[in-house]
């Protein structure tokens, strides 16, 4: 069988706000639950200016490393972990999720949040990963270990008082490493 030609992407544009955000989109677990962490940061352009019309999605394993396959991300019941979240940046270019730390899906593998970034002005989606700071498996990770230290650092979150901080830089100094998958 030959492969059909892929459909090209286009920018999300400025007017998705009525369509894509929904109540609870950024709460993979209820904020304040004992095991909840905050995963948050800024989305920044090549001048370091925050982007107020970007949308970030995350997809992750649960705390035990299981891949969720339950529906209910749009109408959350507060108990089912679906592994998917969506957050539009606010007027200051900030996004914030309430979630749990992903576990390793395979023995010895470094866990990470899989991330998609969209924005007005960005003509196609960008894919990246958010690794956990100080995780013992990071050193052996195929991607992190293949990158110069300063580039690998763009893929690892920083611990802060509420959980994890991860800024996404679309361009410029400390530009986030984005990925394509083979």
């Amino acid at each position: 069988m030959s492969h059909p030609l892929p459909t090209p992407g286009q920018t999300i544009g400025p007017f998705y706000g009525q369509a894509l955000p929904y109540d609870g989109d950024d709460e993979l677990v209820p904020a304040g639950r004992a095991d909840a962490i905050r995963l948050h940061g800024d989305v920044l352009d090549g001048d370091g200016t925050p982007i107020p019309d970007a949308m970030v999605e995350i997809w992750q394993a649960d705390a035990a490393g299981r891949v969720p396959q339950a529906g209910g991300s749009i109408h959350r019941d507060g108990w089912t972990f679906t592994g998917f979240g969506r957050c539009s940046t606010d007027a200051t270019g900030h996004y914030s999720f309430s979630t749990v730390l992903p576990g390793a899906t395979d023995d010895g593998k470094a866990p990470f949040f899989a991330v998609t970034v969209f924005a007005r002005g960005l003509l196609d989606k960008l894919l990246t990963r958010i690794y956990l700071p100080g995780h013992e498996a990071n050193a052996a990770d195929a991607l992190l270990s293949s990158l110069p230290a300063e580039e690998a650092a763009t893929l690892v979150a920083v611990t802060d008082a509420q959980g994890l901080r991860f800024d996404i830089r679309l361009q410029g100094e400390r530009e986030t490493v984005f990925l394509t998958h083979g």
Partner: peptide, 27 residues
């Protein structure tokens, strides 16, 4: 100012990237 200047880095997909979020008639 909103595009990466570097080409995307080629990686082999890991387990979580080989699966997709599920949605249902609940949603």
């Amino acid at each position: 100012l909103r595009h990466p200047t570097k080409d995307p880095r080629h990686v082999d997909p890991e387990t979580i990237e080989r699966w997709a979020p599920c949605f249902s008639h609940r949603d």
